[in-house]
């Protein structure tokens, strides 16, 4: 029933329990959190350099993505009415606890930035909230890497060196994509550059991750979603930087591709982690190799 492998397992059963997180909620949140955080930073940069329409589009996008994030996070709880229990404690050992407090600090800023941006009321307060959200935004976009890496899921845990950079790149690419989609061509320069740099970092981090993980990278290498995400991100970024400079329609298409690419990347990372948790070989073999290495080092000394 279980194919003969070069390691032992208990009837081929996984060692770990499968994460109970639903892909649509948690992988969706990884994407929306990145989009929100990076959009806020892009909005602040745009506002401070005289690009009001890009700033306003990014602020509204950030607030929408934040709302979607909160929906996904609360929807995934087994007891949604108890989500406030996360405000009982602050634990640096729990990225989810730290993330809750980051979102608590970020939310009011992002909300005030979007509200003042759209209505034109309280410009001073709006400027302060915009800068505040822009500074906290990168933390919103990258803490999620620590969130999934701080588990026993082999692919996520072992990839912790590259994951924050992959997420930061993917977040920048998606925020750039939203800017390309929503801002007029004359103001979309920062969005084009953010998309290009973000997509490049995302692809580079993924490549480095796959190389460093060795045999453990198998679920990443096999993932069609990750390949599709990279292709969409790169195509969107390149199209945005070329034809997207002249044609509004081309810029919008490039933006949509970037958003879809970032989402595919997050769902791909999520899926690869689930696969590695469900395969005992990914739990047992790296641990066996670690033990063998430790034994060899002991024997040498």
């Amino acid at each position: 029933m279980v194919p003969k492998a070069d390691f032992d397992s208990y009837y081929g059963r996984p060692v770990l329990n499968e994460p109970t997180w639903r892909a649509a909620d948690i992988a969706g949140y990884l994407f929306l959190g990145g989009l929100a955080g990076a959009s806020s930073t892009l909005a602040a940069a745009a506002e401070l350099t005289g690009r009001p329409r890009l700033a306003r589009a990014a602020k509204v996008g950030a607030l929408g993505a934040l709302g979607g994030s909160l929906y996904a996070l609360i929807h995934d709880l087994g007891r949604p009415e108890r989500f406030v229990n996360m405000l009982r404690v602050f634990k640096v050992t729990s990225p989810m606890s730290v993330g809750t407090w980051i979102l608590t600090a970020y939310g009011p800023h992002a909300g005030a930035a979007a509200a003042t941006g759209v209505t034109g009321l309280f410009p001073g307060l709006g400027r302060a909230a915009t800068v505040g959200a822009g500074v906290v935004g990168p933390a919103v976009a990258t803490y999620t890497a620590a969130l999934i890496c701080d588990t026993a899921v082999p692919v996520w845990h072992e990839a912790y060196r590259e994951m924050p950079f992959l997420f930061a790149g993917s977040a920048a690419a998606s925020a750039g994509g939203l800017g390309l989609l929503a801002a007029p061509l004359s103001e979309a320069g920062p969005a084009r550059r953010a998309a290009l740099a973000g997509a490049a970092v995302e692809v580079a981090a993924a490549a480095r991750m796959e190389r460093r993980l060795g045999p453990l990278a198998e679920p990443l290498k096999r993932s069609g979603l990750l390949r599709l995400g990279e292709a969409l991100s790169l195509a969107g970024a390149l199209a945005g930087a070329t034809v997207g400079r002249r044609s509004r329609v081309a810029a919008m298409a490039a933006g949509a591709a970037l958003l879809a690419g970032s989402a595919c990347t997050r769902f791909g990372i999520f899926q690869a982690g689930m696969e590695s948790a469900n395969d005992p070989k990914h739990t047992v073999q790296p641990q066996r190799r670690r033990l063998a290495r430790a034994r060899a080092e002991r024997d040498l000394t």
Binding site: L35, R53, G64, G68, L181
Partner: peptide, 17 residues
């Protein structure tokens, strides 16, 4: 819900722009 949220974000952001 996820797809709906993303479409809503894009629309709202586009209008704001």
């Amino acid at each position: 819900p996820f797809v709906g949220i993303v479409l809503a974000i894009c629309t709202a952001s586009w209008v704001a722009g």
